[in-house]
């Protein structure tokens, strides 16, 4: 097993500059069915020794900064974060189970790029930014511009996600709901995160397209003050931005219908 374990971020970035490697943080996705896999990703870049530089979270005057190794559990235990960004601990409590939350990282959720990623949906609805670092420097990419296709992103092979930045703004309304096959340990069938800022709405859906994505048609309608008389009206707008599929977990019909229904009923409250 080819594993490199850098002891500093600079080390890690130098390694990536020289050769391709798969960064590993909490490993809760990487290790699933580990011994049954025919081919395992290699080489690996183990980030777990970089807590000093990449761990934890902090609040600055204009944003919440999540280090790359910040886990879901850490935000469940952060009342300061809960006060200002209530969707973060809310979604954290619904990812897998406690045993997954203590290991899984927000940055790992982003890097993994699953279209079902609940953490990504909420971060995107909060207008999060992804901070990428390489031995050549840093850049910041808005999360809603980070993905280019199914499990593909703008991250170059020599880059690491080092932080996620979430702007501190006034939220007028905010909400997240995950629909899964059971109430824990569930891969999302369809999920929605909605945040109304003073500047406008963000509507983000997961498990209904190749990537987690904003539903801009519905955002525009909400920004224009549109109200909805039935879920079908919401569904018609959503249809412009989503393309749910049938798979072993659910159906396109269910996903499209239910996404619209949960949003409709929440808006109607």
């Amino acid at each position: 097993m080819d594993v490199t374990r850098p002891t500093s971020l600079d080390d890690a970035l130098e390694t990536l500059a020289r050769r391709r490697a798969v960064p590993v943080a909490g490993a809760t996705d990487l290790l699933v069915g580990w011994h049954e896999r025919e081919h395992r990703p290699e080489p690996l870049l183990d980030l777990s020794a970089l807590r000093a530089e990449l761990g934890g979270w902090r609040l600055t005057p204009d944003r919440l900064e999540l280090g790359a190794l910040c886990t879901f559990w850490e935000l469940r235990c952060a009342p300061q974060v809960a006060a200002e960004f209530p969707l973060l601990p809310l979604v954290a409590a619904q990812v897998g189970s406690v045993q997954i939350q203590t290991r899984g990282t927000w940055a790992g959720n982003v890097a993994n790029g699953s279209p079902a990623a609940d953490g990504v949906a909420v971060l995107m609805a909060y207008d999060a930014q992804v901070v990428l670092a390489s031995s050549g420097g840093r850049r910041t990419v808005p999360l809603d511009e980070f993905y280019t296709g199914y499990r593909r992103s703008v991250r170059r092979d020599d880059e690491l996600i080092v932080a996620l930045h979430v702007p501190r703004r006034r939220h007028l309304r905010e909400w997240f709901e995950k629909v899964g096959p059971r109430r824990a340990q569930a891969i999302t069938k369809v999920g929605a995160a909605l945040v109304q800022f003073e500047q406008g709405w963000r509507v983000v859906a997961n498990s209904v397209a190749e990537t987690v994505r904003r539903c801009r048609a519905l955002e525009a309608a909400l920004d224009a003050g549109r109200r909805f008389a039935t879920p079908r009206e919401v569904q018609a707008l959503l249809a412009q931005d989503i393309s749910p599929i049938d798979d072993v977990r659910s159906t396109a019909r269910y996903r499209g219908t239910v996404l619209a229904r949960i949003i409709y009923y929440w808006l109607a409250q």
Partner: peptide, 10 residues
């Protein structure tokens, strides 16, 4: 992951 038995929360 995909054969769904109830958890304590269900």
């Amino acid at each position: 992951t995909d054969y769904i038995i109830p958890t304590a929360a269900d």
